[in-house]
Amino acid sequence: MSKRRKKVRGNPAREVTEQESSGAPGAPGGLRAFRQARREGRDLSVTPKRRDDVQDGYLSAASQRAGEGTDSNPHLLLYALLGLTVFLFAYLHLYALPQMNYFAGGFSMPDSRLFGYSVDDIERLRNVMDSDATGQLSFLHRTAGILFPLSFLLCSWAVVGLVMRRGVFRWFVLTGAALFAALDIIENFLIDRILTMQPLDEGLVAVASGFTMASWALLIILGAVVISAVVMSLFRRGLERP
């Protein structure tokens, strides 16, 4: 039986040139030449060349696209959460709550008052808002009023995990976002309570007003931190690209 090595047909990448089969040091070689040199005890400086994804020391275009896609998927989720949070904020505080002013004689809702409200402000709202208006405000609090702080918490969590550098400051941001979500949701139920309770509890009004001011302060500070972190991340990624 002939011991001649069969010639590989139909796959030029597997053909071995004379220089590769020699296994001489410095030859381009390949995996076969590397194994042959190791069996014969010769210089192992001939290293296999990965023809699939490395060419002349650079990744192939397919490998680069695969690597970039794997790295960008979490950031796409972050951008989606950020867009959802901005949309919910705009819907709640720039559209829905201002629309409620029509049912309150032109007075703004307690949620929209950055510097809080007094007992007189709540009494004025109670005199002009009927049961339908308070019911509509309560429904808004139980839908967008809950979705927005939760989306802000998730967005902050994603920013802390994917964008911010390691350090104690990240935990302050995440803790502040969780505190904001809790204060904002509790504030919604307190406002619904003081608008419908009989008689009006002045102490509960003061607590609700404090929750409103604290939630707005946390939202402004943390919102600036989150947006700045995302912008700086985009700037760094733009500089790192060739």
Results as ranks from 00 to 15, higher is better:
residue 167 G to A: 13
residue 141 H to G: 04
residue 53 D to S: 11
residue 19 Q to R: 10
residue 67 G to K: 13
residue 110 P to E: 03
residue 66 A to N: 08
residue 33 A to K: 08
residue 160 V to D: 04
residue 73 N to Y: 12
residue 23 G to A: 09
residue 146 I to V: 15
residue 71 D to P: 01
residue 87 F to P: 08
residue 172 F to S: 04
residue 11 N to D: 09
residue 51 R to T: 14
residue 54 V to Y: 04
residue 87 F to L: 15
residue 183 L to V: 08
residue 197 M to Y: 01
residue 184 D to Q: 05
residue 193 R to P: 02
residue 225 V to I: 15
residue 159 V to F: 06
residue 116 G to V: 13
residue 185 I to D: 06
residue 112 S to R: 11
residue 28 P to N: 03
residue 12 P to S: 07
residue 123 E to M: 12
residue 155 C to E: 11
residue 25 P to Y: 01
residue 111 D to C: 08
residue 44 L to I: 06
residue 201 D to Y: 03
residue 8 V to P: 00
residue 12 P to V: 08
residue 189 F to V: 09
residue 138 S to I: 03
residue 75 H to V: 09
residue 132 D to K: 14
residue 80 A to G: 10
residue 186 I to T: 10
residue 54 V to R: 11
residue 113 R to E: 10
residue 92 L to T: 10
residue 177 A to Y: 02
residue 240 E to W: 06
residue 117 Y to G: 01
residue 125 L to V: 05
residue 127 N to H: 13
residue 93 H to K: 13
residue 202 E to M: 02
residue 21 S to Q: 04
residue 128 V to G: 12
residue 223 G to A: 11
residue 138 S to R: 07
residue 180 F to Q: 03
residue 134 T to C: 09
residue 3 K to R: 10
residue 55 Q to M: 11
residue 101 N to H: 14
residue 113 R to K: 15
residue 34 F to A: 13
residue 44 L to D: 05
residue 36 Q to P: 01
residue 227 I to S: 04
residue 39 R to C: 00
residue 58 Y to P: 00
residue 240 E to I: 08
residue 208 A to N: 04
residue 166 R to G: 06
residue 174 L to H: 07
residue 67 G to A: 12
residue 178 A to N: 10
residue 185 I to V: 15
residue 12 P to W: 07
residue 43 D to L: 01
residue 178 A to F: 12
residue 174 L to W: 11
residue 218 L to T: 09
residue 40 E to R: 15
residue 230 V to W: 02
residue 2 S to T: 10
residue 48 P to A: 14
